[in-house]
Design a protein around this nucleic acid. Structure first.
Length: 113
DNA sequence: AAAGTGACTGTTA
DNA sequence: TTAACAGCCACTT
């Protein structure tokens, strides 16, 4: 773990840049973290985040289909994720999906940095 | 040291 | 539209 803090730190720094009211995909975060194609590592990094703290807006990362990625290992934090996003104004359709055309973070147009 | 696992994803059928 | 598959790689056993 200690020799990979650099990798995780890069991921966390990118996640912190996602604006409120928008979402990013795991693959997108991987690319922006200079880890193209390593989306699963992003998922693992976010799994290690303290869900009780919103210092890192982990709730704003969803899968490429626009849904919250479910897993029994999350012990309910997957449902919490949806609640937090709805609290930020994001609408889920009846299939539990987000319209990425509307909510996907586009760093180019948001002019971050 | 080797194999199994998973908050993923693009391709293929 | 959906689902299975194969890459992917850090972490755990």
């Amino acid at each position: 773990m200690s020799n990979n803090l650099n990798t995780y730190d890069r991921i966390y720094e990118v996640v912190k840049q996602i604006p409120k009211g928008y979402v990013a995909t795991y693959g997108q975060i991987a690319e922006l973290s200079n880890l193209a194609g390593k989306a699963r590592v992003v998922g693992y990094a976010l799994y290690r985040v303290d869900m009780k703290s919103l210092e890192i807006p982990w709730q704003r990362v969803v899968n490429a289909k626009g849904e919250v990625s479910l897993s029994p290992l999350r012990f309910g934090t997957d449902h919490l994720q949806r609640s937090l996003l709805e609290g930020e104004g994001i609408i889920f359709d009846r299939n539990g999906k987000i319209d990425l055309r509307k909510y996907l973070w586009r760093p180019e147009t948001h002019l971050i940095l």
